[in-house]
Write a protein that binds this DNA or RNA. Structure first.
Lengths: 149, 149
DNA sequence: ACTTGACTTCGAGTGCACTCGAACCAGGAC
DNA sequence: GTCCTGGTTCGAGTGCACTCGAAGTCAAGT
């Protein structure tokens, strides 16, 4: 048993947060440097001491990132939150805009997935028989043959 | 009315394909350079002459890209297709693997979207009343106050 | 003949989001 | 007291997917 990184009352170490969130310590420091955090505390020896609130915030950041929000925009949001009450409408507008983008993205991805499923099914049915892309290649060859070259 | 780029029988010009696909001419050339295409023909003056088959292939590439398949993997797939019949199982495996990733990604995005919707609803309800993030900030401040500093 | 504009190739540049390395420090185990 | 572990800051490097610029060609319009 090695040294206990942080007592729980003093907050979580960067390694613990890394493990819980799936981010690396490098990324956590990068997020902080880049202004995405709300102000991470330090313990006596200058090490980061994350609170449970920080964990929740990181979860939000992760959701926003993973749905495609750029770092720049998350930083804007974090700035608004740090600025405190008074800009809720603006925060709401930002979140709504992102939500709308994610909805659209979700639909588009679903449509693409459908097309891919269709192609998979076609291939699966065709394995050992005929090849869907063979058509394309044949078409290419016909085109090549007919081309002025 | 400016010069007619290509007669239709000779194939589509890069500008026409760019317009139809939403990609830029730069990107189309880049895809070809990078081995993503199945062999684009040229006309008498060395200009690219895309076939309808190429259009279909570009649509597929776009679907794969937009669902997160890396260029590298699309190149592998294109290579297999160019190699012709005999590797259908492998192509199928590649597509299935991608499909599975997309399905997972779709579910994850849907989950994140739910969380974001929830947050939007919370904000919308709270505007003018209480602020959800205020809690977090308050928590931060309590933590900061309690921190060893 | 000359200009125009869309194309060609080649190589370099950009933006984003990490990701890593170097050099240093603090606290605990032995 | 020295070693190890795990942190710190700062700045540079990486990988990906474009994106752009330069210099040249070609065909058509005036």
């Amino acid at each position: 048993m090695t040294t206990q990184p942080q007592t729980h009352s003093n907050g979580l170490s960067i390694a613990e947060v890394a493990e819980r969130t799936g981010l690396t310590a490098h990324t956590l420091r990068y997020y902080e440097r880049d202004g995405l955090m709300l102000g991470v505390g330090r313990n006596g020896s200058g090490h980061r001491a994350y609170t449970e609130g920080d964990l929740g915030w990181i979860t939000l950041i992760t959701r926003l990132r993973s749905t495609g929000m750029p770092i720049r925009e998350i930083r804007r949001y974090a700035e608004m939150v740090r600025d405190g009450a008074g800009n809720e409408e603006e925060r709401l507008a930002l979140l709504r805009a992102h939500r709308d983008r994610v909805r659209a993205q979700l639909e588009e991805t679903a449509a693409h997935l459908d097309a891919i499923e269709f192609k998979v099914a076609y291939y699966a049915a065709a394995v050992g028989e005929t090849d869907p892309d063979a058509e394309l290649i044949a078409q290419q060859r016909r085109a090549d043959a007919a081309a002025p070259r």
